[in-house]
């Protein structure tokens, strides 16, 4: 026995929830360009973002996160984009007048990997030091945080008010990135 209801035009034009097929990314089930960054994004996003993918091609190859973009959001993305460009530039252009040294490529890539995930985090001040390491710094009220990226190691410094500072020095990345407890110390927007 087979029953089928043909859709009429009026059925499909004005039922956005059904037609948009807003589904969680995991139900797409296929991330062909899965990278560590994407894995981190999935792990670090508290609420799984909603992705538009009405799967018209059956692949899930072009997921789009449905997000309304306020002027505040756009400011954030614009700044993030500038910082990304800056770090990329550090990799290819010497940053001191009397030196031809560029930023360490691995350090810069590690910094970019973290920056890519910072949708809900306060964006850092970014600098490069004389060894080619990338430095992210935050100064929020009485709290100072400095995160330094090397190719294979990271360093973290935190000082809040008159409390003694916290140091994590020459730590290794976990699966290519900083561990979650450090991520959670980065101030949110």
């Amino acid at each position: 026995m087979k029953m089928q209801r043909e859709s009429s035009i009026s059925d499909n034009r004005f039922i956005p929830i059904k037609e948009m097929n807003i589904i969680a990314s995991s139900s797409v089930g296929y991330f062909p360009q899965t990278t560590p960054e994407i894995n981190s994004l999935k792990r670090r996003t508290k609420d799984t973002p909603k992705y538009y993918s009405d799967d018209i091609t059956g692949t899930g190859w072009t997921p789009l996160e449905m997000k309304t973009l306020t002027p505040h959001d756009l400011d954030h993305y614009r700044t993030k984009s500038k910082l990304t460009d800056l770090i990329q530039k550090f990799k290819r252009v010497p940053f001191f007048h009397d030196s031809d040294q560029c930023a360490n490529k691995g350090a810069a890539d590690n910094a970019l990997k973290l920056l890519c995930q910072m949708d809900e985090k306060l964006l850092p001040k970014v600098a490069v030091d004389e060894d080619g390491e990338i430095i992210f710094a935050w100064n929020v009220e009485e709290r100072n945080i400095v995160l330094t990226f090397e190719e294979n190691l990271w360093h973290f410094f935190e000082k809040e008010g008159s409390n003694p500072p916290n140091y994590y020095d020459e730590e290794s990345y976990v699966n290519g990135e900083i561990p979650n407890f450090v991520w959670e110390k980065i101030p949110t927007k």
């Binding site: 087979k2 089928q4 209801r5 859709s7 009429s8 799967d55």
Partner: peptide, 20 residues
């Protein structure tokens, strides 16, 4: 192996199909 796709009519809507 992945789940089969539903039918989408030329007008763009998904047909609802029940098969036993």
């Amino acid at each position: 192996d992945v789940a089969p796709l539903d039918h989408v009519s030329t007008a763009g809507g998904n047909g609802v199909e029940i098969q036993i």
